[in-house]
């Protein structure tokens, strides 16, 4: 009797614990050349900020936002770089790394022979990606405060927003990865990612686009992310940002469910 009931209780207790064990594996793997990848994730948005925000900003001068607020170009671009770096950090972990582990390292085949279930792998990998992304966001926000591009209090509020952005893109990336057939498919995703990076109100206010295009831009995830983070670091946040939060939460949930289901179907044939 005990031998039948006990394992069930243990497995019931398990879902969060098992997800954590998946993330733990990545900590153990940290020791390799992986550090280089981690560091590059921090410097990339910083270089953009310095070259475009500060450099191009000197030519552009100040901007007047639709709300009437006047900001320096660097203060306008910085939150977009933060959102974009949260996006690319999350995507790097949940697309390339995730796909490599699933298809080539066959890591998840081994893990699924244990009590860990597909959805828990997705959750664990996403949690890890977020831990990594959060470090970038915190460092970048510190730089923003240092350059006087936002206040300390606003940076503290922007931090969880940036983490949410990471969650949304991480879950989305993981779901997309389960549909990828080979590395070639990632080129397509890279292009889409770059288009988002350029046209999500990152360098130019979305109001500058023709109205049809503007509508398209406003439903893309990076636009919502930039809108959210900029709303906080530039204007201190308001009710308008709740739409962004809802949108990003929705993407996170959808991405996780799709990724878990697809993994189950791919790996538990």
């Amino acid at each position: 009797m005990v031998s039948i009931v006990l394992p069930r209780l243990i497995s019931f207790e398990g879902a969060p614990r098992r997800s954590v064990s998946v993330a733990e594996r990545n900590v153990a793997a940290l020791k390799s050349a992986y550090w280089v990848v981690l560091i590059s994730g921090f410097f990339e948005p910083l270089l953009y900020l310095l070259s475009i925000g500060v450099g191009v900003g000197a030519l552009v001068g100040d901007l007047t936002l639709p709300t009437g607020t006047v900001v320096s170009y660097a203060a306008f671009v910085a939150p977009a770089m933060l959102a974009a770096s949260a996006m690319s950090g999350a995507l790097a972990e949940t697309t390339f790394n995730f796909f490599g582990k699933m298809k080539y390292m066959k890591l998840y085949d081994g893990i699924l022979a244990t009590p860990v279930q597909p959805f828990e792998i997705a959750l664990g990998e996403l949690g890890w990606a977020m831990l990594r992304g959060s470090l970038y966001s915190a460092a970048f926000l510190a730089v923003m405060v240092g350059l006087d591009l936002t206040s300390g209090v606003r940076a503290l509020v922007a931090f969880p927003a940036a983490v949410l952005v990471g969650f949304a893109f991480g879950a989305l990336g993981m779901a997309l990865s389960t549909f990828m057939r080979s590395w070639q498919d990632f080129d397509l995703m890279g292009s889409a990612q770059f288009a988002l990076f350029l046209f999500s109100g990152t360098f130019v206010p979305a109001e500058a686009y023709p109205s049809v295009l503007r509508w398209v831009v406003e439903v893309t995830p990076l636009y919502r992310a930039v809108h959210l983070v900029r709303g906080i670091t530039v204007e201190g946040g308001g009710w308008g940002e709740l739409v962004d939060v809802g949108y990003l939460l929705g993407i996170t949930a959808l991405g996780l469910v799709v990724a878990g289901r697809r993994m189950g179907r791919l790996l538990c044939k």
Partner: peptide, 15 residues
């Protein structure tokens, strides 16, 4: 009961 069963199995796959 997949997880409960797998908790008590050891698996050595072909590859």
């Amino acid at each position: 009961d997949g997880p409960a069963i797998r908790a008590r199995l050891g698996v050595c796959p072909q590859l």
